[in-house]
Amino acid sequence: MSTSFSRARRRNMGIAATAVAFVVFILPFLFTFLMAVKTKKEAALFLFSWPSEWHFWANLTEVIKARNYMLLLAYFNSTVITVAAVAGLVVFGAMVGYVLQRRPSGWNRVIYAGVLMGLMVPPAVVPTIWVLQGLGLFKTIHGMVLIQVAYGLAFSVLLYRSFIGTIPRDLDEAAIIDGAKPLAIFFKVILPLLKPVTVTLIVVQSIAIFNDFTNPLYYLPGKDNVTVQLTLFNFQSQFQSQFNLLFMNILLVTIPPLLVFIFFNRQIVAGMTAGAVKG
């Protein structure tokens, strides 16, 4: 009796959860997709309806060709920024976290305070632009990479530092006895063991950086420097908006982060709980 009740209850809860997930995650995606295949006129009505005519290919090619293939350039720029920035975040975050965790020094406190400040203090746009201009990095891709590394470093240092605390110091010492120099210890022993955190960081940060809208808008103006999120402006203006193309653009921009997420999904959960229990 009680088991059948709890089974029914469990089934109902499952259905409810699926329904909520559907509304929150699938419906917007479906709406985007349907809008993306409509004609300009039909899309302007903004209805959640089945398209009367399918214009998938027509819209797709138009979006890609718009403004002299700007979307492809944007993909290239965004990919370069994302890959370079995430690589920097992983290597520097792990290095700083390693040194902070392993080497006892009076400076550690100061550096750690600096790291926490990086998390708490909101970045100021105008002074950052002055600094970039002073260094000749304003409106450059590598300047943008440095900005993204700077904004994300505090988080990755914290994540790595606490995880490195769970790696026994004996491993470092065994490597020292085996004749490893500090860089070899870090790259051959410590960094491979950080894989769970690294995967988490790659997913979280690459999605954030790829989808970043405001930072490229401030620090990377100029039509050669366009990133994917900024291409959304192509089809939206004060007097005329082409919503079918806008939504097709959104669809195209959403796909890469989605792939990253699906691909690494399992490891993220492992990374979030890594170090919680001794494995």
Partner: peptide, 8 residues
């Protein structure tokens, strides 16, 4: 080492 310290 006491913990063996093998590289996992």
């Amino acid at each position: 080492f006491q913990s063996y310290a093998l590289y996992p």
